[in-house]
């Protein structure tokens, strides 16, 4: 394990009904990031439905997203953390894809019932590192039923400064 500040990239309630990127994170240039936890849930539908989703995948070309806003989508785990080094932008860190870019390695996949959602908590040995300027994301691999959906991607920055 490394020592470094932790952050959460969060999609806090967006209607999603297609197989799209829910949240995308582009690491900064000052250090790699390690992924600590990833979750996908919904909060508006009581109908059972079974899906597969990528709780973590690597992008070889960024999806087009709504740029993340600090304080809304990109949160400090602790108020004393420094400002995140993540790159913000429509082809960088943001939420809710409108164009999918190119998916690379799909690292963590879960099949789950929509009533429960899915959560992946990495053990220390399996925390996945994303290199400087690397891009990772959470994505529904099939179109889910229309619902207000939430996601969280917790990560640590292994920054030099």
């Amino acid at each position: 394990m490394f020592i470094g500040p932790c952050y959460i990239l969060k999609n806090n309630g967006v209607s999603i009904s297609t197989a799209i990127t829910v949240a995308q994170l582009k690491a900064g240039t000052n250090g790699a990031i390690e992924i600590l936890r990833s979750s996908l849930t919904q909060g508006s539908v009581a109908t059972s439905a079974q899906y597969a989703a990528a709780l973590l995948l690597k992008k070889t070309a960024a999806a087009t997203v709504t740029a993340a806003t600090a304080g809304t989508h990109l949160l400090k785990q602790n108020a004393v953390n420094p400002t995140s080094d993540a790159s913000l932008g429509t082809s960088a860190t943001g939420i809710t894809g409108t164009a999918e870019g190119t998916d690379g390695e799909i690292t963590i996949t879960r099949g789950f019932n929509d009533l429960n959602g899915a959560e992946w908590l990495a053990t220390p040995e399996e925390r996945i590192l994303i290199a400087q300027s690397g891009i990772c994301a959470q994505k529904y691999l099939v179109a889910p039923q229309s619902a207000t959906r939430y996601s969280e991607l917790a990560f640590r920055e292994l920054r030099a400064s």
Partner: peptide, 10 residues
């Protein structure tokens, strides 16, 4: 120490 944006347009 600032927030960094990927592009000038962002």
């Amino acid at each position: 120490l600032a927030l960094k944006f990927d592009t000038e347009a962002d």
